[in-house]
């Protein structure tokens, strides 16, 4: 998945922040290390950022830094430690995850409203929902994915990871890898989807507001 990149120089010009601010935010871990993409250009090595992510993040920092200190902000941005509990009716009302997914992958207690969803559980549902609604995955495979995430995602302990969804001769499989990782397949494998879990978590926390 190639995404649009923006060079550091263009970014500073566009947002009006200075090098010093950018480096300070990096030090305070407001901007994750993985977003700094190095590429060689004709002027030597330059740093690039994923455009949509970094612009949204800088916008948020600039809006919130008047009310909060940088350290408080840093806590807000580590998406995998997001504290959230959302009840069943809220999920469907706010259109966070589609009804099909909610009904299929929730426990009876959650469906009746007795128990609410934790952020991690929501993240699994959100990921499943994303692939299902994209038409890339069948419902049976969705079950496998949900199990995989439930079993293995907590092992990353909040470290960034990616989800790989591959198919070969009609047989599908899922893998979770830590980033940055290069993965190579044999010729018969078709990579259906490659999703960054960090990004999914961020989208979700954006939706939860």
């Amino acid at each position: 998945m190639d995404r649009e990149l923006i060079s550091k120089k263009d970014l500073l010009e566009l947002t009006g922040i200075s090098y010093g601010q950018l480096y300070r935010w990096k030090r305070k871990q407001l901007i994750p290390e993985e977003w700094f993409v190095r590429k060689s250009t004709f002027t030597g090595q330059e740093t690039f950022f994923p455009k949509d992510l970094i612009l949204a993040r800088i916008d948020k920092i600039l809006n919130m830094k008047d009310d909060l200190s940088l350290d408080e902000l840093a806590g807000k941005f580590s998406p995998l430690h997001f504290e959230a509990a959302v009840a069943h009716h809220e999920l469907s009302e706010r259109n966070i995850v589609s009804m099909v997914v909610i009904e299929r992958f929730s426990t009876p207690a959650q469906l009746s409203g007795a128990e609410s969803y934790s952020f991690e559980q929501l993240l699994y549902l959100h990921t499943v929902d994303r692939l299902l609604s994209g038409g890339e995955m069948s419902l049976d495979e969705a079950g496998v994915l949900a199990d995989t995430l439930r079993e293995h995602f907590p092992k990353f302990e909040g470290k960034p990871c990616e989800l790989l969804f591959t198919r070969k001769m009609g047989v599908s499989s899922f893998a979770l890898v830590s980033v940055p990782a290069d993965v190579y397949y044999d010729a018969g494998v078709k990579l259906v989807a490659r999703l960054s879990m960090t990004e999914m978590a961020e989208r979700l926390s954006g939706k939860l507001g």
Partner: peptide, 10 residues
């Protein structure tokens, strides 16, 4: 002194 890169305010 040898440093790969330097970034900062001042």
């Amino acid at each position: 002194g040898k440093v790969k890169e330097i970034g900062g305010e001042s």
